[in-house]
Design a protein around this nucleic acid. Structure first.
Lengths: 140, 140
DNA sequence: GCTTTTTTTTGCATTATCCAAATATTATCC
DNA sequence: GGATAATATTTGGATAATGCAAAAAAAAGC
C-alpha cells in the first residue's frame, strides 16, 4: 500500500532529476537541448522526416507542445518545417545538416547518462523496470 | 542498449501522464491540487509540521520551488507559515483545519489512482520497479 | 562586534503544459 | 458544385515547475 503510493512519488522525483542531469551533461558538452527537445530530435533521427502529428503521437505529448518544441528547434537551426506536397495542411519536419551533425555525439551522451543512472542495477531488474513503465503508460 | 535509452523516455512520458491523470481525478472529485502540491500536503500529513527546508529535502525539490508550493497552498488555505520560536529565520509549515479535513479522501484518491495505474502488474514486478526507481534516484 | 552561514523571499527567465479559438486545407455529403 | 465537417497546425493566454542570482533577516562562530 505504502509502496504503491511511493511509485508515483519516485517517478516524479526521478523524472525531475533525470531531466536536470541530462541538461547538465548536454550543457557541459556544448549541446543546447532540453530533455524534451532531445526527445524530438532522437525521434527524428530514428524515424526520419515526420509530421508534427506523428511526433506528438510517438513522444505522447500534445500538439501544442510539439508546435513549441519545433519552434525552438527551428530557432536553433536543427530542423525545418516543410509543407507537404500531398496535403498542404501538414508540416514535414526535416532535420537540417546541423541537426544531423550532432546526432552521434548527442545520442552517445544520452546513452552514457542513462547507463550511469542505471549503474549497479541487475540487468533483469532493468528489464522489469522498463516493462512496468510501459505497462503503466498503457494503463493510463 | 535501446532499452536503456527507453527507460528515460518512458519515465518522462509516465510522469507526464500520471500528473495529468491525478489532476483530472482530483478535479473530478473537487480536490484542487496539482501533483506537486499533493506531494507537499502528503508529506505534511505524514510527518506533521515541517520547515520548508525539511520539505525540500524530503520531496527533493529546490527551495525556490518549495517557496512557491507553500505560497499556493497558503492561498488555498490549506497550510500556514508560522515563524519558529527557536529560530526566527525558519518557517514551520502547519496544515490548517481545512487542510486536515481533506486528508483521508485525498489520500484515498491518490492511492486508488496508483492502484489502477499498476493494475495487472505482478506484485513482485512492482516491488522491483519501485526498488529500481529508488536506486536510480540515488545514483544521480 | 564583525564576519560568515543559514533560511527564506524576491525578481526574473525559461520551459512544459493546457485550453480555446483561429486559420488553412482537405474530405464529405447532399 | 457548394455547404459543411473534419484535420493539421498556429496563436494567444494562462498556470505551473524549475533555475539562477541577489536580497533580507536572523543566527552562529570567532
Amino acid at each position: 500500500m505504502i509502496l504503491i503510493k511511493q511509485a508515483g512519488v519516485y517517478v516524479n522525483i526521478l523524472n525531475c532529476k533525470l531531466k536536470k542531469h541530462l541538461s547538465e551533461v548536454f550543457k557541459k558538452n556544448g549541446v543546447n537541448l532540453t530533455a524534451e527537445q532531445y526527445l524530438v530530435m532522437d525521434t527524428l533521427w530514428n524515424e526520419g522526416t515526420l509530421t508534427q502529428q506523428a511526433i506528438a503521437f510517438i513522444i505522447q505529448k500534445d500538439k501544442n507542445s510539439v508546435t513549441q518544441f519545433i519552434d525552438n528547434l527551428e530557432k536553433k537551426g536543427l530542423v525545418t518545417r516543410s509543407v507537404s506536397k500531398d496535403d498542404r495542411r501538414v508540416n514535414n519536419i526535416v532535420v537540417t545538416e546541423q541537426g544531423m551533425a550532432m546526432k552521434d555525439s548527442t545520442k552517445k551522451l544520452a546513452i552514457e547518462t542513462m547507463e550511469k543512472a542505471l549503474e549497479g542495477i541487475p540487468e533483469q531488474d532493468v528489464l522489469t523496470f522498463v516493462d512496468v513503465l510501459k505497462k503503466v503508460c498503457a494503463n493510463i
